[in-house]
């Protein structure tokens, strides 16, 4: 029998079902989140050749015990006050060589932000959550100070400049410009956070 009026149309009614199937597959097997967290550098394994002598007043000791209590500079301290204490220590400028410091210039505290070191010690039974909170507060102290200096020098926040610099979608010309600024501010308040081996005793 001769066919009339062109080839028959293919029924596309099930196309939506197929597409839904694919969609559901991708929904199930993929994740949308991008991870975020605290960036840290571990110290290299080999100790430096020369022993560096550090004055006691340039070290800010933070101890966390297994119950999550803090011992800061030999005193029991509430976690909420840690950031303020750390800022006061870093920003002290004891020997007067730091012209941008706004601290108390206390002779018994740190000499210069570039010399100030924060030493963090924790017990093996410390909860990870507590440790992260302490890390967060210490990084926060550095960020607060860097933001202040970046505001003074460039009129914008350091954290904002850094995230724009690290974002791969930022154009290269902007990034070169930001790199100089970011490194400048990092040099003003270098992050010196040392973590000693964990103690087992108490």
């Amino acid at each position: 029998m001769p066919r009339r009026g062109g080839p028959p149309e293919v029924n596309a009614g099930s196309m939506a079902d197929i597409a839904f199937l694919l969609l559901i597959f991708f929904l199930v097997t993929t994740t949308i989140e991008t991870d975020a967290g605290l960036d840290r550098m571990l110290p290299p394994m080999e100790p430096p050749d020369t022993d560096v002598v550090i004055k006691q007043k340039n070290i800010f000791t933070v101890n966390i015990n297994k119950n999550g209590q803090l011992l800061v500079e030999e005193e029991l301290l509430d976690l909420k006050q840690l950031r303020g204490k750390a800022i006061a220590f870093l920003d002290n400028g004891g020997d007067g060589s730091c012209n941008y410091c706004k601290g108390k210039k206390d002779a018994s505290s740190s000499d210069n932000p570039t010399k100030a070191i924060i030493s963090l010690k924790n017990d093996r039974e410390t909860k990870y959550g507590t440790y992260i909170t302490v890390q967060n507060e210490l990084v926060g102290a550095y960020n607060d100070l860097r933001n202040r200096e970046a505001q003074r020098l460039y009129g914008r926040n350091f954290t904002e400049m850094e995230s724009e610099f690290l974002n791969p979608e930022t154009p290269a010309s902007t990034r070169d410009d930001l790199k100089v600024k970011v490194q400048k501010v990092q040099g003003i308040f270098p992050q010196k956070l040392s973590e000693a081996e964990t103690s087992t005793s108490n």
Binding site: L38, D39, P44, R124, T126, Y128, G129, Y131, T198
Partner: peptide, 30 residues
């Protein structure tokens, strides 16, 4: 790391990472 884990295990991991010179770490958090 789960927030209820103990730091002892983390310290051991960090030591292992230092041994193989994987020094850049990120503590992933919310």
């Amino acid at each position: 790391v789960d927030k209820d884990a103990n730091m002892g295990l983390i310290a051991d991991i960090k030591l292992e990472l230092r041994k193989v010179n994987a020094l850049k770490v990120n503590y992933t958090t919310y």
